[in-house]
Design a protein around this nucleic acid. Structure first.
Lengths: 341, 341
DNA sequence: ATGAAAGCGCTAACAT
DNA sequence: ATGTTAGCGCTTTCAT
């Protein structure tokens, strides 16, 4: 039933070597022979055995994709979209993606993803913040690695990052251009470079506009940038500061929490408070008003990471490149011109 | 660097066959020899080459996992959890999962997942509702298949299903036991057996309690059971029926939409209206009140599907089993005793 | 331009 | 109980 290279060779009356040369275009074969082989391949519906190729080449044709459980299960499909981009690009490159999630509190006792132990991947893509000891233990295996949306402490690998500073600038400038001056920033998990750079962009924009940066308008103590913490952080800001007219939330999840807080407490968005998020996760169609935000090209990030990795794999030398994907201001309903009361 | 079976054999002073026997436990080897081999394996950090095993066994060691984009990107991590269960179980069984998503409107022109075309998987798991023509085209490849949470029209494959009727009964009985009589049902995508069976359970429970089933309390015309449609369906019910005191939503996503509608329109949950969902997707910690629901064991479903598939793979005969996973009533804050106004 | 043949790392008869 | 060896399907060097 299943045809092999032998069957093709026999059918085309050539040696198996010739068939292999034709398939891989690795040696010059006369046009006539080539077409005979190609015809045989087609008529037998022949597909080369991956296992055999892998065995002889010493490669696996697989790429490992690692992220933490909580990233994978996040309500907002942020990392899932990145994965989709990677998977999509892997199709054209002929790789398979082995996806695995690890616990966010991965420790010495946990075992490494088995595709690493079993040497079943040629390279690795790591998305999002990942426990440091995991990174260290993986690096012992010397696999080409690309990081997405995270800068590991000890880093020499190619990186695909969001241009968060630019995003922070865009978001804050948008609010400033609407006339806002008392602009709060709500962040969390400031160890993650994404969040801290968004804050940097925020500060920079204020300085550029000669608006003083006030620390009491900046809340960054949430451990994890999710809805609940957005809600709680908003409470901290608004219970003390009555003159805030705009909020820049570190991501859309937090922005949704902020929005909930504002609604529950009688603030109208955007009439009383303008609100901008970050990520554009298209989380919640129910959201009213719809959220002005900074769009992060998630699919593209996944694509870029795979390209980078495949490049490294093929060149046998790590290019150690850094790709900064740019972001885009998406104006919706949650921001509007500042009107003094 | 990379050690092979030969290195182990040499180190343990045995033949490579003996090493193989030890690894696979396929022949009786004396305890002494065995321990020597095991020690050699450990000291060399030896891991058998997957490619070689695959080649010799004619298998790939991979399992394909297919679902639609929108299921994969859903706000509520329902299918992602199922996938996680599958991936988890695959670890113990030594399989790798190749995850791919297809468009919900997959048609004749779209190409099949390439792991099918390239014969890179030994079997397939399909989760959720999938276009019928995809199923047909896949079936031509004669790969052992297991369906999760969906009953294909032309079916002979093993199935892992939710006991939706039981769930519908549990949910409705819970409301009835609280004294409710005017209980609405909100569903959507009734082509999906899950949703229609939940409705069946609802009807059955009412009949058991001698409560007449009223069609004007049943809204099932939403095409897709998401938040927005939950919201819209609630509007349909409540704008016409003033005596409804409880709602059974076909899933949590719709329930969240219903809750939003109720809040926006001055109803208090559960004081005015009791609300129960289905799935227990733990979607939204912000939800207030927290949602009473029927818990579906998502991880377990993924596990069961993989077990079923591996079983089929090993026995070389399709068991054509059907597994009905049972559900559980989770009482939280959104339901309470009926109080006449 | 094409073919013969040696492996890649492993399993499983078949021998001993 | 353990060893010898013939492949699995392919790539690639070396001949021709």
């Amino acid at each position: 039933m299943k045809s092999t290279i032998k069957d093709v060779a026999k059918k085309a009356s050539v040696s198996i070597a010739t068939v292999s040369f034709v398939i891989n275009d690795s040696k010059h074969i006369s046009a006539e022979t080539k077409s005979r082989v190609l015809k045989a391949i087609k008529s037998l519906n022949y597909h080369p055995s991956k296992s055999a190729i892998n065995l002889v080449s010493g490669k696996t044709g697989n790429i490992g994709f690692i992220l933490t459980d909580d990233h994978f299960l996040r309500t907002e499909p942020f990392y899932t979209r990145i994965f989709l981009g990677t998977e999509f690009e892997a199709r054209s490159e002929g790789y398979y993606i082995l996806l695995t999630s690890v616990r966010p509190d991965f420790n010495e006792k946990d075992i490494l993803p088995r595709f690493i132990l079993n040497k079943s991947v040629d390279g690795i893509i790591i998305a999002g913040k990942i426990p440091h000891n995991l990174i260290e233990r993986i690096s012992a295996y010397n696999l080409p690695t690309v990081f997405i949306d995270y800068i590991p402490q000890t880093n020499s690998s190619p990186l695909v990052l969001i241009d968060n500073i630019q995003g922070g600038l865009l978001a804050t400038n948008h609010l400033i251009s609407l006339g806002h001056k008392n602009i709060a920033f709500i962040g969390g998990d400031m160890e993650h470079p994404s969040l801290s750079d968004r804050l940097n962009g925020y500060k920079q924009a204020l300085e550029n506009a000669n608006i003083p940066v006030k620390n009491n308008l900046i809340v960054t103590d949430a451990k994890y940038p999710d809805r609940q913490n957005g809600f709680d952080s908003a409470k901290k800001i608004f219970s003390k500061n009555k003159n805030v007219t705009a909020v820049f939330a570190g991501n859309d999840a937090m922005a949704i929490g902020v929005l909930n807080y504002l609604k529950n407490n009688g603030y109208k968005v955007p009439q009383d408070i303008s609100l901008i998020g970050f990520d554009d996760v298209e989380a919640d169609l129910m959201l009213s008003p719809t959220l002005t935000t900074i769009r992060v090209p998630k699919i593209e990030m996944g694509i870029e990471a795979l390209k980078l990795l495949v490049n490294t794999l093929k060149n046998k030398k790590s290019l150690s490149k850094k790709i900064l994907v740019s972001v885009e201001l998406i104006i919706r309903e949650s921001t509007s011109v500042y009107k003094p009361k």
